[in-house]
């Protein structure tokens, strides 16, 4: 199910924090994001200590936790969205998953129609048990690679990733960035040359121009998170206007993915 979005298309994967601003409203936001053209959803699970996230996602996480949004509630939400037919990935720090237990979490995620799981603080060396459990439950595993990742590690990360490899664009945490540094594009080219899996770029992909540049450099898809969270944080007069703003943002990003001509090696 998950690889399909990379077939003939440059997918736009939208990240939203489950439970931000409320559980119901994050569900509405997800529906709008799909309507505006997002090809898949990365659903963030709130965590008390999100060390890989910048201020925007930290804040969204805190708000969601204040409403007691748990991993179980996030899986319920994924289940309600699975009717869209679009892949849903869960992004969670390790501890909430460990607390539920790998086996129970994988079984429930699979039942909720989740395509894959991203765990930013589980390095590939320590992931054997998780990967086995996930695959046994027909759940995809997505690992992150960063500009700091050596080429041998990149290969190992690719071997353990199903669907796609998540390329982290920068040395840094999640956040809105006007543009990406030159080394990001070098990293994309390096990853492209050794990874035989689709590549999706995230962390700081925040405007259509960056989307086009990333696709031209060879990534297959893009992940946009903090920008969408910032749209949900805008002080618009009404929730309807917040959603309209979110919809036009996603629409513009999707336009950038559809109009960028794939490079030769990207095909």
């Amino acid at each position: 199910m998950s690889a399909r979005i990379f077939g003939s298309n440059h997918p736009l994967i939208a990240y939203l924090m489950a439970g931000y601003p409320t559980l119901d409203r994050s569900l509405e936001a997800a529906e709008i994001v799909f309507k505006a053209g997002a090809d898949a959803l990365e659903l963030g699970v709130p965590f008390s200590d999100p060390i890989a996230d910048g201020p925007l996602i930290q804040k969204a996480s805190t708000v969601a936790l204040r409403q007691n949004v748990s991993l179980r509630l996030v899986l319920d939400m994924a289940g309600r969205l699975s009717g869209s037919g679009k892949p849903i990935y869960i992004m969670s720090y390790l501890n909430p998953i460990l607390r539920m237990g790998y086996a129970e979490f994988a079984a429930q995620a699979s039942r909720s129609g989740v395509s894959g799981v991203i765990i930013p603080d589980l390095p590939v060396e320590l992931a054997a048990e998780w990967v086995r459990t996930a695959w046994a439950n027909r759940l995809g595993t997505v690992f992150l690679a960063t500009p700091a990742t050596s080429t041998p590690r990149l290969k190992k990360i690719a071997q353990n990733s199903t669907g796609f490899v998540y390329l982290v664009s920068v040395y840094g945490v999640t956040g809105v960035r006007d543009e990406l540094p030159g080394y990001t594009y070098e990293f994309i080219r390096r990853a492209k040359s050794v990874v035989n899996r689709p590549l999706a770029l995230g962390f700081g992909v925040s405007n259509p121009r960056t989307v086009s540049q990333a696709l031209k450099a060879g990534v297959d898809g893009v992940i946009v998170g903090s920008l969408l969270i910032s749209k949900l944080m805008d002080q618009e007069p009404s929730w309807v206007e917040v959603l309209a703003n979110l919809e036009s943002t996603v629409h513009a990003l999707k336009q950038a993915t559809s109009t960028t001509v794939p490079t030769e090696e990207g095909k």
């Binding site: 603080d121 390095p123 690992f143 960063t146 500009p147 700091a148 982290v168």
Partner: peptide, 12 residues
């Protein structure tokens, strides 16, 4: 123990 760190830190 172990090394449950974000990927960016693994090489460091």
């Amino acid at each position: 123990g172990g090394q449950f760190a974000p990927e960016t830190l693994m090489e460091a």
